[in-house]
């Protein structure tokens, strides 16, 4: 950016001298080349390990540490994926992750939309509490909450169940979700739902029929954010579940590591499958995602 401005200004000054303009164009070309070189180095740093994961997931296990390393080996195939997809134990981990993450995203949205509507449209004495809750969620170490939550979840009979995990995750997702949805509702003019209420609709009806349909972009961003938190969580999933039929993908990958004598290709295949939902969500909804990330952290 700096370089552009510099080039532009010098271009303006030197407009009358065509010979020097060539050198300006030359300098611009150098700036483009340097920027591209920086971007490519960065892309190698960020992307090469991910590429290595993908190509390793296709190799036959004895080829994993072939010397010298190769991207595509003689026996590369989809066999590691088929091995994962034909193993009911591994499939169960994926099912659990989807059930828990979708339930967390759905329930969080359901609660957050109503709470945010109240916060946005009515004056509430407890408004500042939600801000405190958001900061607490960001600041309180999970390891500190783990011991009492473990005690509570066991006492409530929710140990090693879906509701135990879902309710625990919602404690972490709800404050973000409420803050983000309140911010979104605040951008929608009050006249919209007030007009509906003059026509005799209840405030509940105004929310569902008028506000929610136009708040879909905000809900998509909150939904993805919460899905991702639940999908990626490890510490509570490790501690609050015990049996394979309740374990989620991050724990499943770890179990794969201990159980066989390191079937690296299958571990990588499972990693690719475990990464896909979040990466696909990101690629298709990038704009919402980045909006959610920045409003979730910096602006509140």
């Amino acid at each position: 950016m700096t370089t552009t401005t510099v080039t532009r200004t010098s271009a303006a000054v030197e407009q009358s001298r065509p010979r020097r303009q060539l050198s300006t164009a030359g300098r611009r070309r150098i700036a483009v080349a340097l920027t591209l070189a920086g971007l490519i180095v960065g892309a190698l740093f960020a992307g090469a390990p991910v590429l290595w994961m993908v190509f390793s997931s296709l190799k036959a296990n004895p080829e994993i540490f072939a010397y010298p390393p190769q991207l595509i080996t003689e026996n590369s195939s989809l066999a590691p994926y088929l091995a994962i997809l034909n193993d009911s134990r591994q499939l169960r981990f994926f099912l659990n992750s989807y059930v828990v993450s979708l339930a967390v995203a759905g329930l969080t949205l359901l609660v957050a939309v109503h709470a945010a509507y109240a916060f946005s449209r009515y004056d509430f004495p407890g408004k500042s509490i939600i801000n405190i809750a958001v900061i607490s969620v960001q600041a309180v170490p999970p390891i500190t909450l783990l011991i009492p939550y473990f005690g509570l979840v066991v006492a409530l009979g929710l140990y090693n169940t879906y509701p135990g995990l879902i309710l625990t995750y919602m404690v972490f997702t709800l404050p973000y979700a409420i803050i983000m949805m309140t911010g979104y509702f605040n951008t929608l003019p009050r006249e919209l739902d007030e007009a509906a209420r003059v026509d005799g609709t209840s405030s509940f009806g105004a929310l569902w029929r008028i506000l929610i349909p136009i708040a879909i972009p905000g809900m998509v961003s909150v939904g993805m954010y919460t899905f991702m938190i639940a999908w990626n969580e490890y510490l509570f999933a490790l501690t609050l579940t015990r049996t394979d039929d309740m374990r989620t993908v991050p724990i499943g990958i770890q179990l794969l590591m201990g159980q066989h004598s390191y079937d690296w290709n299958q571990m990588m295949a499972m990693s690719v499958l475990g990464s896909l939902p979040v990466i696909l969500l990101f690629i298709f909804f990038q704009r919402y995602f980045i909006g959610g990330m920045t409003s979730g952290s910096v602006k509140n």
Binding site: V50, M53, Y234, I253, S271, S275, V278
Partner: peptide
């Protein structure tokens, strides 16, 4: 998109990778 990739991977997967 490439630069964000590492952040999109679950930490458990990052560890194994």
């Amino acid at each position: 998109t490439i630069f964000v990739l590492p952040w999109l991977l679950t930490v458990a997967i990052v560890a194994v990778l």
